[in-house]
Design a protein around this nucleic acid. Structure first.
Lengths: 158, 158
DNA sequence: GTAGCACTTCAAGTTCACTTGAAGTCAAGG
DNA sequence: CCTTGACTTCAAGTGAACTTGAAGTGCTAC
């Protein structure tokens, strides 16, 4: 199978060459070999890019993806960390599915609002939808792990 | 119904006071009235915040949310724009549902990989999933979901 | 009356995921 | 030989969504 230039990969994957270089720079893509200084990609990179894009849509950050794909890149993965991340992300995906489904039905309800009573209708719709909410989003989105922001200064109860 | 200080709203909604001020500054929340300079919120703001959060999870940007909620804020909405945005977003949500479901099954398959053959297994899984279908991604080239909770594990790159 | 804390504003800083720009390299075609 | 165009690197810029910091105000408790 013919090898691809960065331009060809970009075109086929529907992204820019700069994105490919960026992905490589953050370790998300393995450095391809070179022919007179230029990158030559194996066609399999397209599969990886497809996974990356899907995963991004599913809420993965590129950092998380790097961890997840490290096994693929180098055959070296800290297995526990990896499993933990998977497990964690599966939980998040579950939450996201719930939220997206809810959002879908919220939008569908909004679509049915008549122009003249838009404000009232949306208010009612909003009420209906926010009253079903309670448990969904407190475990993992904001509450627990935040290394980069030790956040407890503000907002303390007396 | 008792009015809430910004601190109380923040605590109950699980966000920061700075976020509330920020939302107000970009017109996502209406400016509440004040008592000696301090914001006093009606409890209904919590419902709105719940909607905002769900919508964010569903891939709405704050800008889009502002347009969507303008009807609620002021009763004044450019109805066509509004409907168009709804319609467009419904399409995007459909795409996202598909991608998230796919990602879920990808992760589940990955979980089943045996430690010793992790790399090979993931490769096979990746192949299976990326060959299943062409990439679904029309209309918005960027991943829709950004602001998902960044997960702990990452960041030590050589 | 002063300590403490929650609040105020405004500007600047941060993270993520890229994008853009400048300056240079390389192979092919006219 | 010269141009064209796709490539190269590296640094700096962008936009979204917040966060942080500085400096000050106002209420309550001791």
């Amino acid at each position: 199978m013919a090898e691809l230039s960065i331009g060809e990969v970009a075109r086929q994957a529907g992204i820019r060459t700069s994105t490919l270089r960026y992905y490589e720079s953050i370790g998300l893509l393995p450095a391809p070999h070179r022919v007179s200084g230029r990158r030559r990609y194996d066609a399999s990179v397209l599969q990886r890019l497809a996974i990356i894009r899907t995963a991004q849509q599913a809420g993965f950050t590129l950092g998380e993806l790097r961890v997840l794909l490290e096994a693929l890149i180098q055959g070296s993965a800290p297995a526990e960390e990896w499993q933990a991340l998977l497990q964690h992300k599966l939980g998040e995906i579950e939450v996201m599915l719930t939220n997206i489904r809810r959002m879908k039905s919220l939008l569908e309800d909004m679509m049915r609002c008549e122009q003249d009573y838009l404000a009232e209708c949306i208010y009612v719709v909003g009420l209906r939808h926010s009253s079903t909410e309670k448990i969904i989003n407190h475990g993992n989105a904001k509450g627990a792990i935040h290394r980069t922001a030790p956040t407890e200064i503000e907002n303390r109860r007396t």
